[in-house]
């Protein structure tokens, strides 16, 4: 997700040197530039406020979550703390989760898998995982994850036997859910950095298990 900051900064002022001419922007795209300029002119927010939010979001990525998961796999005491007090435990790892109201970690086991959705909106643990993927926000995922979780998982390449219980969480309120995936077999002795590479974004939403070691 690359982003030329200078372009956002000056996008409303100059249409040159941009791959997509500004006049081709859609109705709402034009309006956000207008809203931005008016809010700054009226002193409601500043360009710095906006830039700070861009920088904050760019610093968030599934790598943060993967770091938490790998540490939890490697260190049982850390895992316990992560489940008991996720926000404080994030701070311990230098991950700022203070903007989340409440943060809940759902631990997968051999018998149980969790899947997270927000049917009413698109709530997502952004401070931990960054902006949500397009599919998570899609109307089809929001419609089907609650009553066809196994079908959705199958589309992502995961087929689970009936004996494994699926627990879908619809995050309708202020709780933000992160799935702590099951540590793959054959990873004994791997370092935290190696383990973190197996932890995909989708495995922390719960549609699939983490990658298998090579």
């Amino acid at each position: 997700m690359s982003m030329d900051r200078s372009d956002v900064h000056h996008a409303a002022d100059t249409g040159e040197d941009h791959p997509h001419p500004k006049h081709e922007l859609g109705y709402y795209a034009k309006r956000i530039y207008a809203i931005r300029d008016l809010l700054i002119e009226k002193g409601v927010i500043t360009q710095d406020d906006i830039q700070r939010q861009i920088d904050y979001q760019e610093a968030r990525s599934p790598a943060n979550g993967a770091q938490l998961v790998a540490r939890a796999w490697a260190d049982p005491a850390f895992k316990k703390r992560l489940i008991d007090d996720p926000k404080a435990t994030c701070a311990e790892m230098g991950i700022d989760a203070t903007s989340i109201n409440e943060f809940v970690v759902l631990e997968n086991t051999e018998r149980v898998r969790h899947l997270v959705v927000c049917t009413l909106c698109s709530c997502y643990p952004r401070p931990i995982l960054g902006r949500p993927p397009d599919w998570y926000k899609s109307l089809n995922y929001r419609s089907r994850a609650v009553n066809d979780p196994r079908g959705v998982m199958r589309e992502f390449g995961q087929e689970l036997p009936d004996e494994v219980e699926i627990r879908v969480h619809d995050s309708t309120a202020d709780m933000r859910y992160l799935v702590l995936p099951l540590r793959p077999r054959g990873t004994e002795g791997m370092s935290e950095a190696e383990l973190a590479k197996l932890v995909t974004r989708d495995s922390m939403i719960g549609v699939v298990d983490p990658l298998a070691p090579q």
Binding site: R150, D162, E165, D170, A173
Partner: peptide, 29 residues
Amino acid sequence: TLYLVGFDQKEVWGQYLAGSQDKLFVDIY
């Protein structure tokens, strides 16, 4: 007060295929 409320999938949907123990959790005030 906000609760995490659990439901059996079979209770929520008249038809729910496979996974008889599958559950659904919703945050409800």
